[in-house]
Design a protein around this nucleic acid. Sequence first.
RNA 1: GCGCCUCUAGCUCAAUUGGCAGAGCAUCGGACUCUUAAUCCGCAGGUUCUGGGUUCAAGUCCCAGGGGGCGUACCA
Length: 468
Amino acid sequence: MAEIPYRFDPDTRVEKLIANYADLDPATETDDVVTIAGRLMLRRVQGKLAFGTLDDGSGRIQLFAPSKTTEKFDQFCDLNLGDWIGVTGIVMTTRRGELSVRVDSWTCLAEARRPFPDKWHGISDTDTRYRQRYVDLWVSPEARNVFKVRSKMMSLTRSFLETRGAIEVETPIFHPIPGGANARPFTTHHNALDLDLYLRVAPELYLKRLTVAGFEKVFEIGRVFRNEGVSTRHNPEFTMLELYEAYADYEDIMQLVEELVEYLAVELTGSTILKIDERELDVARPWRRATMVELIEEAIGTTLSLDTPIDELRAVAADHEVPVKDSYGPGKLILEIYEKTTESLLWGPVYVTDYPVEVSPLSREHRSEAGMTERFEAILAGRELCNGFSELIDPEQQRLRFEEQAAQNASGDDEAMLVDEDYLRALEYGLPPTGGVGIGMDRLAMLLTGATSIRDVVLFPTLRPEQN
RNA sequence: GCGCCUCUAGCUCAAUUGGCAGAGCAUCGGACUCUUAAUCCGCAGGUUCUGGGUUCAAGUCCCAGGGGGCGUACCA
């Protein structure tokens, strides 16, 4: 094999050639010499004339290689599918009008030493697609496009928030006390400090410390880790956007989120109407807002409230085959009934509001509904996208909520939170009225790309190690 | 966790009732100056996921295990 150079200088991209030479007549040779580099995807050798298809990541273009003008013609014909090459030559069209680059000179940039997937079918085995993403991305432009959209989604989200005066921060991933969400954490250990640490399940409590510190609008986009099952909607590590805004309440945050999602949809797909599973989802503002008990009533025809006698709530749960525990209070019963009977029927977009205090340990009590909090979740395409609320700012109430959580944790609920004394100390210095939200960015990427599995929007999803 | 489905050549897939494991693409050799999933001729390519069992005979049937998918549960 020829020497592989240490660097190479392509001077254009395939997508540019396609755009710039769209109107070239058939059988035209321009005087424009270009250099491109990429991967050989197809090859058609016909004796003294060869054709190839080069993919440079921005698009595919035909290579036209006559033995008369192409240097190292025999070696060119011996290239394998998957080899990387750099090509210099004129831009032209064939007699049939196909835009091509004539291969005047070329350089091998990498050999593909492994056999490659079927050039027509690609890889259909999902296991191989996820384990060898480098192959998947190479052979299937659709997969590559998903991650380009995801990348743009992230940068547009950052600029959207920065334009509104928010600053991006990075808070610890190692937490001495897991908190900010009801989830089982991963554990690890720091040897020098001889300290057990938890990988964060949410950045929430650190971000609110920063609001105490005077950062009025902060956000973090980062990985969080939850030690739970995997599914088409769950990966053990996933990317969360959390945002906190001083002086705002949950209404303000709902407006911000729907604005963001509408903006991303228009920027990335050109429309507010997304296609998911053959169905349409119109994310145009404003989204419907409805309380949890209203939605339960729509779904099962029964009106519930925190004042409903607990025996009645248990009876409703039993009628709908909702599994309950004796320890559940009215709030938890209502949440369970909602999740089992109502949530799966929702398509959205809809903001489900007013969650019971009992199941919302970090949310501020509702200003007018006793026993409820000012909390919302958005349901889009039948999936939860985000969770936000007017933040609980009172340190004494927060201590009571933490203690309830800790009691549940002690009695075996390993998803319940613990008392975080430092967070309480921060609240004692004064947290102003604040609204906040956490958005599952992987699920947002799914909506924007129409992906039906989270693994299609995560480059290297968590899998069992391969057996050899 | 539980339930259902699935695993055959590098890739995509066949193989009737239990009866000699095959094709296309890719690779390798040959022909070919406008093809574009190029075409044509030829060679090679296999622990049918693994281990047991039934049978004269197992890719096929049974049991156990492994990988993967989907559903369910938990969550975002």
